[in-house]
Amino acid sequence: MKSDGPVIEATGLGKKFGSFTAVDNVSFQVKKGEFFGLLGPNGAGKTSVIRMMYGFSPLSSGRMKVFGLDIETGWREIRSRMGVCQQENTLDPDLTVEQNLLVFAGYYRMPRKKAAERTRELLDFFALNHRKNAQVSQLSGGMARRLMLARALINEPGLIILDEPTTGLDPQSRHQVWDKLRDLQARGLTLVLTTHYMEEAASLCHRILIMDHGRILVQGSPEGLISEFAGTSVIEVENPGPDLKGFVEQRGISHEELAGRLIIYTDDLNGLGRVIRQEFCPEKCLFRSGTLEDVFLRLTGRELRE
């Protein structure tokens, strides 16, 4: 593998289940040391892409290379150098916290002494040492999630895949997981993340790919996507009058109309913002920065998926 080559190189990925196309012609690259976010509503095809990344799902078309190796022939070496933190809790409930790590190390043919050492390090790093003899079922959601992360790191991977690592966690646990992930990134690990929390993706990821219905919608840095698709500022007007609607439509100002609410996207908070504040604010107006969530909702729409 060339040292400057991408860690992940997906070219024209396709995945079909019978006549249903889950992933359609998806191409992207992830560079070494990058924190890469894969976003999309439920059923967008994120998990399918992730499963193709670690060679769990065979590709229907296209090509997936990880560490410069083709997943179809080099899956065993690829998996030995990556860690996967799955969406569901796949910890082994028949084993203790410590045994979960030790037994997993065996799947990587790690020598016993090395495995014990690595297990100790990871229990320390994830603050699980005091619970090492506990049953997995006795762990809180946050602890179980940390153990999932620890287990994904047992083989000292160069790449780690995180499928919704903070779903269902309380804010304290979530922040703790974020700190650990930033720490890992600082140590040079390449990370791929899927999440439904846009704020999480915006603060952690260098680059983001948003997909829907199996296709890529956009790729870019969080800041770049916000300024391109949401504008730096957002004005939310409650119960807007017809005059305001007429005003934004006439001037071609980027906006979205919802039930009882008008959302205006703009880079010109001073000029436009002042006009709206003075002339069109019947009840409540909210002035705030554009966020990744605005981008996401604008691109993927607001209707429910399931």
Binding site: R76, R79, E88, T90, D92, D94, F104, Y107, R109
Partner: peptide, 14 residues
């Protein structure tokens, strides 16, 4: 129920 095989199939095991 335990998804043990799913976890194993993310490691070098076939």
């Amino acid at each position: 129920y335990q998804k043990t095989f799913d976890a194993m199939l993310a490691t070098p095991l076939s």
